[in-house]
């Protein structure tokens, strides 16, 4: 038996697994997105062409879901980047206990999102939660209902997401900061460059590739965000926090089992994520020069 044949035999199980678990579902769901079909129905898929995509792109509710997701991703990732980078700058200089502090800051991102959601639900509770109390709202009758008011619910989700994932940005930013050679700062100091100049011309450009990777990951995650929103608000009140992922879940499973339409929506989300990722990757390549 030739070496090539042996290699092929060893690779074959993985290829078969990939085809069964990834390629086939991908192609089959693409087919289903052009059909009217419910997975729990006996009826076979009925070809409807582009009707599902047309329905998604012309339904104001779907556009509202995309708008909510966009707002959530934009605000959440922006805050995570600022806070994460800020924390990294603070922890860049070693001091006594900085190791323990860094580890403690990383704890939220190690927790299960659904557990985080359940805990924050209690924290936000206007009767028994501590969040309003810390903000100075001591009268439960006038304190805000973070998860019950349409104007606050999305902010509540953003707060939890930022609490959970800013450490991730911090971690990558710290890696980028620690890789900056000291001689660059030494040379700048000899030239009497100000701290702001050093930050703008040395720190930021040097850390930018890793920061962009963090932003890329966080943006993709924000677009896919499901468990945290589901656990905190379930998309409510009304549809105030109904992101596309929540809508997709409701369409695909919760009572509806509209497999055709949900497959189409999944592909629309996939296209958007690929497009956004490409934009970031271009920026990343530019930053790398």
């Amino acid at each position: 038996m030739s070496d090539t044949r042996i290699v092929q035999i060893f690779i074959l199980p993985t290829v078969i697994l990939l085809i069964c678990m990834n390629i086939f579902p991908l192609i089959y769901s693409l087919f289903l997105s052009f059909t009217r079909f419910s997975v729990i129905s006996d009826a076979p898929p009925e070809w409807v062409g582009l009707a599902n995509y047309q329905a998604i792109l012309t339904d104001p509710r779907f556009w509202n879901n995309f708008a909510i997701t966009g707002r959530y991703a934009l605000v959440s990732v922006a805050l995570q980047t600022i806070i994460g980078f800020g924390l990294a700058m603070l922890l860049r200089t070693k001091f006594k206990g900085s190791g323990i502090l860094t580890t403690l800051i990383l704890v939220p991102m190690m927790l299960s999102p659904i557990v985080v959601a359940v805990f924050w639900k209690l924290i936000f509770n206007p009767s028994a939660g501590i969040f309003n109390y810390l903000l100075g709202f001591t009268n439960i009758n006038t304190s805000p209902e973070w998860l019950g008011q349409t104007d606050l619910a999305l902010w509540a989700v953003v707060i939890v997401d930022v609490w959970m994932w800013s450490p991730f940005v911090m971690l990558l930013a710290l890696a980028g900061l620690s890789a900056i050679p000291d001689y660059l700062y030494e040379a700048a100091a000899i030239d009497r460059a100000s701290a702001w100049f050093q930050f703008r011309r040395i720190t930021l450009p040097q850390v930018m590739p890793l920061l962009l990777i963090a932003v890329l990951f966080r943006t993709i995650e924000a677009f896919k965000q499901f468990d945290l929103v589901m656990g905190l608000t379930g998309g409510g009140p009304g549809d105030a926090t109904e992101t596309v992922s929540i809508r997709l879940y409701k369409l695909a499973f919760q009572g509806q089992y509209d497999t055709g339409m949900s497959s189409a929506l999944a592909y629309v989300i996939l296209v958007i994520i690929i497009a956004v990722s490409n934009l970031y990757i271009r920026q990343l390549n530019k930053a790398r020069g």
Binding site: D239, K250, Q256
Partner: peptide, 19 residues
């Protein structure tokens, strides 16, 4: 299940969200 979805959503939007 499909009928329940608009019932739930519209009721919650008016009663809870106050819209």
């Amino acid at each position: 299940g499909r009928l329940l979805e608009p019932a739930q959503r519209n009721l919650a939007t008016y009663v809870v969200a106050g819209e």
